[in-house]
């Protein structure tokens, strides 16, 4: 891991040296120096907190609504006919189209809305697939023994759906993070990572742009690892 990171830092350093213009490509040293300087300020951490809570709110809303809609679609053909095409349409609409409209309605919570709209279809489709993949022989067994719906859900459906949902959530969390910050940048949301990135770009502070990007990558990696840790523990519970 460390030698690979060192190799790519050297490649970055080489490219920055070859270009020779810090305003176009900041060197790793300049970028990390700016990151260190930014990390000394309260605004940096407030921006991270601001982005984190908005994006995570969008992600968890997508998780909840995606699961509820998938369960509804399995339970009722009418709900399936109404919801399935609508989610497919949402999935096909480009992020930019949503942002230009949503910016008027969700000025302060644009990142939440965008993270939700990008992640919900992924959660929905995977949960729906997971429920459909449940072994009918086990469900028949549970029906014969008159096992309650709650117990069937806990012992059969949850176990079958969990791998589908985990992979969707793992992909979704990265997408929420990236799309949420893009939305903040487009919406020039002050006190957020995207807002910081936008300000750095407008002032041609390339080292700051790179510093913010490093912070985004590090946070994305940390959230992904934290998420994996929580769910691996959950899966290993007896």
């Amino acid at each position: 891991m460390v030698p690979v990171a060192l190799f790519w830092l050297l490649v970055w350093e080489g490219i920055a040296a070859a270009v020779g213009a810090g305003i176009i490509i900041a060197s790793p040293r300049a970028a990390f120096a700016r990151l260190f300087a930014l990390a000394q300020t309260g605004n940096f951490w407030l921006s991270i907190g601001g982005s984190m809570h908005r994006i995570m709110l969008g992600f968890f809303l997508a998780l909840a609504i995606g699961i509820i809609l998938a369960v509804g679609c399995v339970a009722s053909k009418l709900i399936y006919r109404l919801i399935h095409p609508a989610v497919n349409v949402i999935n096909a609409i480009p992020l930019a189209s949503f942002v230009v409209v949503a910016i008027f309605y969700f000025r302060h919570s644009l990142a939440t809305f965008v993270a939700f709209i990008m992640v919900m279809p992924i959660i929905f489709h995977n949960t729906y697939k997971g429920i459909r993949a449940t072994d009918p022989a086990l469900l028949e067994m549970a029906r014969v023994f008159r096992v309650s719906h709650g117990k069937r859900t806990r012992y059969i459906y949850v176990k079958t759906v969990a791998p589908f949902l985990l992979s969707a959530a793992s992909v979704g969390i990265g997408i929420a993070w990236k799309s949420g910050i893009s939305a903040e940048m487009i919406g020039i949301a002050r006190g957020t990572i995207g807002g910081g990135l936008h300000a750095a770009r407008m002032n041609l502070l390339t080292a700051d742009v790179f510093a913010w990007t490093i912070a985004i990558v590090a946070l994305s990696y940390a959230i992904d690892k934290l998420f994996a840790l929580i769910f691996v523990r959950e899966r290993e519970r007896p």
């Binding site: 022989a137 549970a142 117990k151 012992y155």
Partner: peptide, 27 residues
């Protein structure tokens, strides 16, 4: 009539313990 059945295939919850499989059908 309440029915109980041993299927031709075992139809166990493979991820649960033997005890949990037996208790699965109890109220």
């Amino acid at each position: 009539k309440k029915i109980s059945l041993v299927f031709q295939e075992d139809r166990l919850l493979e991820w649960e313990s033997a005890l949990s499989n037996v208790l699965f059908v109890t109220p």
